[in-house]
């Protein structure tokens, strides 16, 4: 979170997610809310990005591309995406689709097909090393993305080459499109699996911006193993009727649901402001 901000950025991102998904009448809301605080941490000061086209910027890959709206919200907050363009989300001839495209300023790589982002991130991290650059590469994966065999190809590659400048974050919300991961294809124990493959593993609360920021800033991204934050999250976090519910992978909100969702997020935001030091 940027210094001086009393309210975590995650609330502002949540509000934008709700506004835009309601306006565009689209789903994937639960997935976006699940990563809102992780994205807020990254764009609230963790990522070293002077400008979206600075070659020396940290790279970020949203491997779970279906949460692009959370990323657009952060890019808007950072001032790289205008309100007018944000309002084109999912419109005809818009650059802002359900999954992110690299033509959008601030989007380093297009994603959408699961299981590809970590490989690209590993290549970007290797490139930084070959160029003698101190820049880092961050990649956000869904837990279900670890169903893909290619993810494990990339996990092995990054560990073998000791890509310390690579930081993966797994959004461990325990859900996937058609069910809970423990029922569809059990991924547990997630942390131990990455550890067994040679990564430095940190289990974190994926909704605590302060903790996330502190853990990331303490990482040694110059030498040693690649890093993964296994972020424990709640799908749909912040909207009570969406939390942990499979259907909110798909559904758009009704008017009543929208009003309630906004109220819950605004109330939580106010409470956070009041309790801030």
């Amino acid at each position: 979170m940027p210094a001086g901000d009393a309210v975590p950025l995650g609330y502002a991102i949540r509000r934008l997610i709700l506004e835009q998904s309601k306006r565009a009448h689209v789903g994937h809301i639960g997935s976006c809310l699940s990563v809102a605080d992780i994205i807020a941490t990254l764009y609230g000061g963790t990522l070293d990005i002077g400008a979206p086209d600075d070659p020396e910027r940290d790279r970020f890959i949203l491997s779970k591309g279906h949460a692009a709206l959370a990323l657009y919200a952060a890019l808007h907050v950072r001032g790289w995406l205008s309100a007018a363009e944000l309002d084109t989300f999912c419109g005809d001839a818009s650059r802002l689709g359900v999954h992110p495209e690299h033509v959008v300023p601030g989007v380093d790589f297009s994603t959408g097909s699961l299981g590809q982002g970590l490989s690209v991130a590993a290549g970007a991290a290797l490139a930084a090393r070959l160029l003698g650059s101190r820049r880092r590469v961050f990649v956000l994966l869904s837990d279900a993305e670890c169903d893909e065999g290619s993810t494990w190809e990339a996990i092995m590659f990054a560990a073998h080459h000791r890509l310390a400048n690579l930081v993966a974050i797994v959004d461990l919300n325990g859900q996937q499109a058609l069910g809970y991961t423990k029922d569809v294809l059990d991924l547990s124990p997630m942390a131990e699996r990455w550890q067994a493959f040679g990564w430095d593993v940190q289990v974190v609360d994926g909704h605590d911006e302060k903790q996330l920021g502190a853990v990331i800033s303490a990482l040694d991204t110059v030498s040693g193993r690649p890093h993964v934050l296994v972020a424990q999250t709640v799908f749909g976090r912040g909207v009570s009727f969406m939390e942990g519910q499979i259907r909110w992978h798909y559904l758009p909100m009704s008017d009543e649901q929208y009003v309630q969702a906004l109220r819950e997020v605004d109330d939580a935001s106010c409470a956070a402001a009041l309790s801030a030091p």
Binding site: V120, G123, L126, S150
Partner: peptide, 26 residues
């Protein structure tokens, strides 16, 4: 020797890694 990488039997990852390298100018 520093510009050769055997990625193992993992063609998908090989192309993904190449994509990341190419974006950085390689």
């Amino acid at each position: 020797p520093d510009r050769f990488f055997n990625l193992g039997v993992a063609e998908q990852n090989m192309v993904g890694v190449a994509t990341g390298l190419a974006e950085a100018g390689f």
